[in-house]
Structure formats: structure tokens, C-alpha cells
């Protein structure tokens, strides 16, 4: 649970000299609203994670989700890491995310740089070709026909290739690449550097912030994707984690051997509460995002916002 207080010390605040001092009422209302917003976001996440570490007894005492730390246990994690289906789905998710993100980044960075040199050959028609797909497409059913027709049904590449290119991300990268100092690039050209070399040794090293942000966008997209699995992977032994969560936590199907049901009831033969196991699986899905996020988040302001302000 997080709270925040607004600065009281006028000397350290960044308030411009011409701005009125805030009224106590206004300041109080602002603090209250911001605290509520933060709580609405943080409390559910916190209690889901906490519940995954709680014993059956403390869940019974809380009557459901645990809000205040009580008796803690990692039993649920031992259970899910001994469950074939969950362990496999975790590996599938990790593999799809790593391979997919790598592919998407290579393809997008190349395309973005290829389109970022003004006056280059055919960059306008190629750009139009890409942007059209942002506003019009074949739709779900024809896409399925294409992917299935190419053998993607029941095959892992269907989880990566159809969505590997996000034109929006290419546009973001392109706008950063085209603002790389032209003097630097011209100097490199005079020294005989080709476009591949310029991209690798000049443009990429100066674009680390935006690269981090776009990598996060792609990675999160792959990590969270359940629908591609629902469409193309009929066998639950091949599923990634989000589709497992969808099927066994959200839709309440019971998972063989795990006691996961949607009712949160205690099953006599079970060591741990099904609710704890459910929340442990959910936490497993949350965790990589929570771990990576702080490292990339600082670039949102540095990298992405600057681009916007310049416009």
C-alpha cells in the first residue's frame, strides 16, 4: 500500500514565482485523489501476491484474499513448480517472449532505420505500405486462414510471426532514428561507413532509451498473449502461461492434479488452498513484468517523452 505526500517545503519546490500558493483545501483534495488512484492500482496487485504466499488458515481467517500479512508459506509455489502443465507453460511463455522479442526488434529496427533517411529510394511508398495496415486489415477469420494455410495451426511459429511487426513501434523508432545528428552521419559517410555500419555504431548506441522502451512493448505483448494460443494451439500441453491462467483460473476449469477450481473452496486431500495456487499462478504471470518494469520505466520520461515534446 502506498501513500504520498505533496511537498510542504516551498524552498525546494519547483513552483514558478508567479504561481499562487496552493490553498490547504486544494492541496488536501489533490493528495486524497492521488492516494486513492494509487491505492486502486496497488492494493489488488499487493493482495494477489500476498495471498499466493498465505496459508489456508490465514485465508480462512481473511475469508478470501488476504490483505494483512498473516502466516506465510511458499507451499503453493512448490505445488505449481511440480505441476507439469504449469512448468511447461512457463517455459513456453519464456521461449516465445525471448525469441519473439528478438525477432521483432531486429525486423523493426532495420525497417525503421531503412525508412529514416530522408530522400532515400522508395521510402514513401514503403512507409505507406506499412501504415495502411494500421487502419485496415483482413480481420480475424482471413488471418486465421492464412496462418493455418501456411501450417501455423498446432505449430509454435503461429505465436510469433503473425504479430511480429507492430507498425506503430517502427514509426516510433523511425522518428528517433531520423533525429540522430546528421553531422555525425555525414562524417561517418565521408570516412567510408555504409548504412549497416552507421546503424550499428552511431544510431543504435545513441538510441538506447527508445530501444529499451520498444523492447518492453514487444516483450509484454508476447508475454501476455493468450489469444494466439486459443486460436492456433488446440493442445493444452503446448499452451503458454496466460492461456493456462485463462482456462484454469478465469474460466474455472479444473486442472488435472492441481485442485485448481474457481470457487476457492478447500479440497480435503489438498495441502494448500486452491485459491493460493491460483494466485501463485497469477503472480507467476505478473512477476516478470514487475521485475523488468522498473529498469525500463525510467526511460519513458527520458526517451519517449522527449520525442513527443520536440513535436
Amino acid at each position: 500500500m502506498t501513500t504520498t505526500t505533496l511537498p510542504r517545503n516551498r524552498r525546494t519546490s519547483n513552483r514558478p514565482p508567479w504561481e499562487e500558493k496552493p490553498t490547504a483545501l486544494g492541496q488536501g483534495a489533490k493528495t486524497l485523489i492521488i492516494t486513492i488512484v494509487l491505492a486502486v492500482i496497488a492494493v489488488p496487485i499487493y493482495s494477489v501476491v500476498l495471498t499466493s504466499f498465505s496459508t489456508q488458515a490465514s485465508i480462512n481467517r481473511a475469508g478470501g484474499l488476504v490483505m494483512i500479512p498473516d502466516e506465510l508459506t511458499t507451499q503453493a509455489y512448490k505445488e505449481i513448480f511440480s505441476n507439469q502443465l504449469i512448468v511447461h507453460s512457463l517455459l513456453v511463455s519464456l521461449t516465445i517472449t525471448v525469441l519473439g522479442t528478438a525477432l521483432s526488434m531486429v525486423v523493426s529496427v532495420l525497417a525503421a532505420y531503412g525508412l529514416s533517411r530522408s530522400r532515400s529510394f522508395a521510402h514513401r511508398p514503403i512507409l505507406m505500405f506499412m501504415i495502411v495496415t494500421m487502419f485496415f486489415g483482413g480481420g480475424l477469420v482471413p488471418t486465421f486462414l492464412v496462418v493455418a494455410g501456411l501450417g501455423g495451426y498446432d505449430n509454435y511459429w503461429s505465436q510469433i510471426l503473425p504479430g511480429a511487426v507492430a507498425v506503430f513501434n517502427i514509426l516510433v523508432l523511425r522518428s528517433f532514428f531520423s533525429s540522430t545528428s546528421p553531422e555525425l552521419i555525414d562524417a561517418a559517410k565521408i570516412d567510408g561507413a555504409g548504412d549497416w555500419r552507421i546503424l550499428w555504431s552511431i544510431v543504435l548506441p545513441t538510441s538506447k532509451a527508445v530501444l529499451a522502451v520498444i523492447t518492453l512493448f514487444y516483450a509484454v505483448g508476447y508475454w501476455n498473449n493468450f489469444f494466439a494460443a486459443q486460436l492456433y494451439l488446440p493442445d493444452n500441453g503446448m499452451w503458454p502461461l496466460p492461456q493456462v491462467v485463462n482456462t484454469y483460473v478465469l474460466q474455472g476449469n479444473s486442472m488435472p492434479g492441481s485442485g485448481i477450481t474457481n470457487t476457492g473452496q478447500y479440497f480435503g486431500h489438498q495441502q494448500v488452498s486452491p485459491l493460493t495456487i491460483q494466485m501463485a499462478v497469477v503472480t507467476l504471470t505478473l512477476l516478470p513484468i514487475l521485475i523488468v518494469y522498473p529498469f525500463v520505466q525510467k526511460h519513458f520520461t527520458k526517451g519517449v517523452m522527449i520525442g513527443a515534446v520536440k513535436g
Binding site: V107, A111, G114, R117, F121, I126, M130, G194, D195, W196
Partner: peptide
């Protein structure tokens, strides 16, 4: 080279 770079995405 610029055109070749856009090919995978295209």
C-alpha cells in the same frame, strides 16, 4: 542497403 533493411518487415 536501406531498401534491403525494410524487406523483412515488408
Amino acid at each position: 542497403s536501406l531498401v534491403i533493411m525494410t524487406l523483412p518487415a515488408v
